[in-house]
């Protein structure tokens, strides 16, 4: 029964928290850029407007793909709140991400096609990091279950600081922030227009936005697992991490996918592996 309540909390909290975070993000970004910025609830208005638009698709596949993406994202967050198995969460989330790319591939637009290829490369870059982080959790707690993480008596951050840094890469990619916003970015100001999202429109783009909120909450939730002993510190940790993300977004140029593959694979996976060896030896 508790699990069911947690699942429902997860399903509701995902979009609400995700949308608020997106709104807050835009506001803080605006402050960094010396602008006024939109209201914090702007993200909700945007999605509401998208849902009100005419349903237009280039390809029937896109309908399926956007629905699978949002359902997978919601399920993975629900599983996370239900304190289920991390590997299961990981695979459900990966299925969603791949379907989003498939929807983009289904359209013939070159922007969407090239964007989809770049998105695949991004998935390829951050998924190994996520897996290694989960292996790290296993080495510390002896289980892949989220509930096991809650039982540790000292913050995981102390044991896996390098892992946290590597997760930062995954977070930046997942949040579509500079320097990793080349497959699509929050502003369509790039050579591929809106990249992987170019051909999604109306309600289906709205669904993808909602799925993005779920994923944001999920990745931030993973970050939260690094400090489970004290809720206050957990919130501070997430707050600082997110603020750092916004800072990075605002002080860096957009890079290319060749650069990303080198950095994330070398540094991200390198940091994780070093941390794993340390955990294994320690």
């Amino acid at each position: 029964m508790d699990t069911l309540i947690l699942v429902i909390i997860g399903l509701v909290a995902g979009p609400v928290l995700g949308g608020l975070i997106a709104g807050l993000d835009r506001r803080v970004t605006a402050w960094f850029q010396s602008r006024q910025g939109p209201p914090i609830t702007q993200a909700f208005y945007d999605v509401a407007k998208l849902f009100g638009k005419e349903k237009m698709v280039v390809n029937q596949w896109q309908i399926l793909c956007s629905w699978v993406y949002v359902i997978a994202a919601a399920t993975s967050l629900a599983l996370f709140f239900a304190q289920s198995d991390l590997l299961l969460i990981f695979f459900v989330q990966a299925v969603g991400a791949v379907f989003m790319v498939m929807g983009a591939m289904a359209a013939k637009s070159p922007y969407s096609q090239v964007g989809a290829q770049r998105e695949l490369l991004q998935v390829l870059a951050y998924e190994p990091v996520l897996i290694l982080v989960f292996v790290g959790f296993y080495l510390v707690t002896g289980s892949f279950s989220v509930s096991a993480v809650w039982q540790v008596d000292q913050p995981l951050l102390a044991k896996m600081p390098l892992m946290y840094l590597a997760l930062g890469y995954a977070l930046t990619i997942k949040l579509r922030k500079s320097p990793f916003d080349f497959s699509t970015s929050h502003h369509g100001h790039q050579e591929l227009v809106k990249g992987v999202l170019t051909e999604y429109s109306g309600p289906y783009l709205g669904l993808i936005e909602v799925a993005h909120w779920y994923e944001t909450v999920l990745v931030l939730g993973l970050c939260a697992l690094f400090w489970t002993t004290n809720v206050a510190w957990m919130i501070v940790l997430i707050g600082c991490t997110y603020l750092l993300e916004i800072l990075v977004d605002n002080t860096m140029a957009r890079m290319t996918w060749r650069w990303m593959l080198k950095r994330v694979w070398l540094l991200g996976i390198g940091l994780s592996v070093v941390n794993l060896i340390w955990l294994y030896a320690g």
């Binding site: 010396s34 500079s178 970015s185 502003h187 957009r254």
Partner: peptide, 16 residues
């Protein structure tokens, strides 16, 4: 130019 390589904050700064 800053906007071309995705540096929005720098773009805003110059225009300011």
């Amino acid at each position: 130019f800053a906007d071309a390589f995705g540096f929005e904050a720098l773009f805003m700064q110059f225009w300011k």
